[in-house]
Amino acid sequence: MRRTTTTQEKQCFFCTANIKVIDYKDGELLRKSLNPQGKIAGRRRSGVCAYHQRLLAAAIKRARFLALIPFTTR
């Protein structure tokens, strides 16, 4: 079966918004990159570039430690 593909080119949100530093204290922003289970969204889903995905993952892990965002949800 053919996979549905989007015709739009994926653009990294952080690149387009000119975000150079991802703050781990900004739980609201980080939550948007989690799936309903609280896992980090993959690049395929989020369209984030490799550089920002690395920064994002580090920020999410810090925020989880401080209970700003969940490790997991039921």
């Binding site: 989007t6 739009q8 994926k10 949100f13 918004a17 000119n18 975000i19 900004d26 889903r45 989020s46």
Partner: peptide, 16 residues
Amino acid sequence: QFAFRASWQPTEAGIS
């Protein structure tokens, strides 16, 4: 950078 905070609305495919 502050101006762009909380403006991200990922669509279902994750593309804004």
